[in-house]
Design a binder for these strands. Structure first.
Length: 552
RNA sequence: GCCCCCGUAGCUCAGCAGGAUAGAGCAACGGAUUCCUAAUCCGUAGGUCAGGCGUUCGAAUCGCCUCGGGGGCACCA
């Protein structure tokens, strides 16, 4: 919508230039926004101010000159206001035409090609398979999944991936923890080490080993047992993670195993290649990456004295692998506690000769669970925490997702469990879902009253005359721009704010105007508007992975 | 000590590629239901945009400094 306005302004600038009123050695970026007050007009531009300097003229004079040359059949009013704004009002037909178009797009409304098919990968969650997902992972899952949906809608060729850290020391700890619990359950007196996984879920896994394998591991050495327990525990936990995510409506395009990078020698090859480039050296019996040469604080170890490779080492191979698969932009979501990882990953990409701009780490800040205004303690004892599954089963998928997505992900989130469960308008998920249900209910009422509604027919929209109706129409029509902007800024919370604003306009409208009335033409036109609203709410919720109930 | 994020109404937060008189929800107070879902709506009140300096026609928004909160600074992940 705004691009149309920009074009009109652009044409006016050209005419003003031809008329000798403006110099315009180069055309400025045209900024179109909504005026502060909706009464001022539909769109505004600050072109007068931005040109004031280069034209050496008063902003108001420039604005007046541009305004004089604004010409388009769609314009209904042009006004210069304030320090040099041009306020523009468009004809009703301009909006109605676009509203029809939106409705005809149906579930595709909101899509655009602004991403131009750029191949993008979003890697998120990637929690180690050593325990169930907790709320923090849940926020990452919701944000990553929502961002993927938004970027697809905005025309990016998007893939999602979960990176499984299935090698290394913590897998040994996991195997050993399970093995110890197994023996404990079999009646042995075990002193369970502090640094092992102490959660109860380990006991459940050990019990499962007993159920499946009985006593076969009882009189065997640790070396004989650990490989089985490691694999068994990992598979079991990973299965649980996949189940939790799938119930949370998060489905990955790909699950990538770290182990596979060792099996196909990718890690080895990556290290050799970096060595060949002179980015690697040995010191104190370890192998280091010279990351400090690329804006990292210090160099990082990639192979320990013990000969083991660090996670950072396989991350190098992993990101090289992503690039080799043709991704032009790599987005990683990480918990904010990992932010120290950002410079070293950027250093790796630079060392490999890529522009670090192709790589973007989004830090997702912490979640505090609140119950009746009090913080729920997150990990008082080791192994005790609020799992994602617990929260979802308490407040439901829709509310959980909404709460994770309603705030900018770089700010700390207060998640009020009581509020999330409430069925009142202070609960935003509820408020939006209710609007959708209310619209559906109006359609049901229309049917009961014998109103024949056919959206494919050419409904006459001329009866729509209220300012409120046009405010709603404009809000609907800005949806594709909201999606685009969210995708560009990588900010998922814009969708929830948008929906809240849209829907509150509807609730107000509903209370002041009747949709179904004796005026048949008006009824049809208003139903058409409601249909557009319903489509927009659904599409917006679809981006958030939230359901749009027809009845509540 | 160094690095990252945050600080906007009593509370939770928008706004931040600079733009007009800084917004919403909740809480508080006052109203609205013969009518498509009152699960809703309307109104009132509420501000040193943490503070200071700078950049500019213009700063909540950009830069520097200070203060306050959170999180990092591993041959852990």
């Amino acid at each position: 919508m705004k691009t149309v306005i920009k074009q009109i302004i652009h044409d006016a600038l050209e005419k003003a230039q031809q008329a000798g009123e403006l110099e315009l050695p180069s055309f400025p970026e045209i900024v179109v926004e909504k005026p502060k007050d909706e009464k001022m007009g539909d769109f505004s531009t600050n072109i007068g101010m931005t040109l004031a300097k280069s034209e050496r003229k008063n902003p108001k004079t420039i604005a007046e000159s541009v305004a004089r040359h604004l010409k388009s059949g769609d314009l209904s009013k042009v006004e210069v206001a304030g320090p040099g704004f041009i306020n523009i009002k468009m004809s009703q037909e301009f909006f109605l035409k676009r509203l029809r178009n939106a409705v005809s797009q149906g579930e595709n409304f909101g899509s655009s090609d602004s991403g131009q098919g750029t191949k993008v990968m979003i890697e998120f969650v990637s929690a180690n398979p050593t325990g169930p997902l907790h709320v923090g992972h849940g926020r990452g899952a919701a944000v990553g999944d929502c961002l993927a949906r938004i970027m697809k809608k905005a025309g990016y060729d998007l893939s999602t991936e979960y990176y499984i850290n299935d090698v290394g020391n913590q897998m040994n700890f996991l195997g050993r923890s399970t093995w110890l619990r197994y023996r404990e359950l079999k009646g042995e007196e075990i002193e369970f080490p502090e640094d092992h996984y102490r959660g109860d879920y380990i006991k459940d896994i050990a019990q499962e080993v007993i159920d499946q394998k009985g006593d076969v591991f009882l009189n065997k050495s640790e070396e004989e047992c650990i490989p089985f327990f490691r694999r068994f525990a990992k598979d079991n936990i990973l299965k649980g993670i996949k189940k939790d995510l799938s119930e949370f409506r998060v489905n990955f395009d790909n699950w990538f195993s770290e182990e596979s990078l060792y099996e196909d020698k990718s890690v080895e090859n990556a290290v050799d290649w970096l060595k060949g480039q002179g980015h690697i050296y040995e010191k104190d019996g370890a192998v280091w990456l010279k990351s400090s040469a690329f804006d990292d604080d210090k160099d990082r170890v990639i192979v320990k004295q013990t000969g083991e490779r660090t996670y950072f080492c396989s991350d190098i191979a992993y990101h090289q692998n992503k690039i080799n698969r043709g991704f032009k932009k790599l987005i990683n979501l990480m918990g904010a506690d990992h932010h120290g990882y950002v410079p070293r990953m950027e250093a790796v990409l630079e060392a490999m000769g890529y522009d670090k701009k192709i790589f973007k780490i989004l830090l997702v800040q912490f979640v505090s669970l609140l119950r009746a205004g009090e913080k729920v303690s997150m990990s008082t004892r080791s192994g005790e925490f609020e799992t994602l599954e617990d929260v979802v089963s308490e407040v439901g998928v829709d509310a959980t997702r909404y709460f994770f997505l309603m705030r900018s992900s770089d700010t700390h989130l207060d998640f009020d469990l009581e509020l999330a469960k409430k069925e009142t308008p202070d609960n935003p998920v509820f408020y939006i879902q209710y609007a959708h249900a209310r619209i559906c209910s109006i359609f049901r009422a229309a049917e009961e009253n014998g109103v024949i509604w056919d959206s494919s027919a050419g409904v006459d929209l001329a009866p729509l005359n209220e300012d409120e109706e046009f405010a709603i129409i404009q809000a609907i029509l800005s949806f594709p721009e909201v999606v685009e902007k969210s995708a560009r800024a990588l900010e998922v919370h814009r969708i929830s704010h948008y929906l809240l604003d849209l829907v509150s306009r509807f609730h107000g409208y509903y209370s002041r105007h009747r949709v179904i009335s004796d005026d048949k033409l008006l009824t049809q036109a208003r139903l058409f508007l409601l249909d557009a609203l319903r489509i927009t709410i659904r599409n917006g919720f679809e981006l958030m992975g939230i359901s749009s109930p027809e009845k509540m």
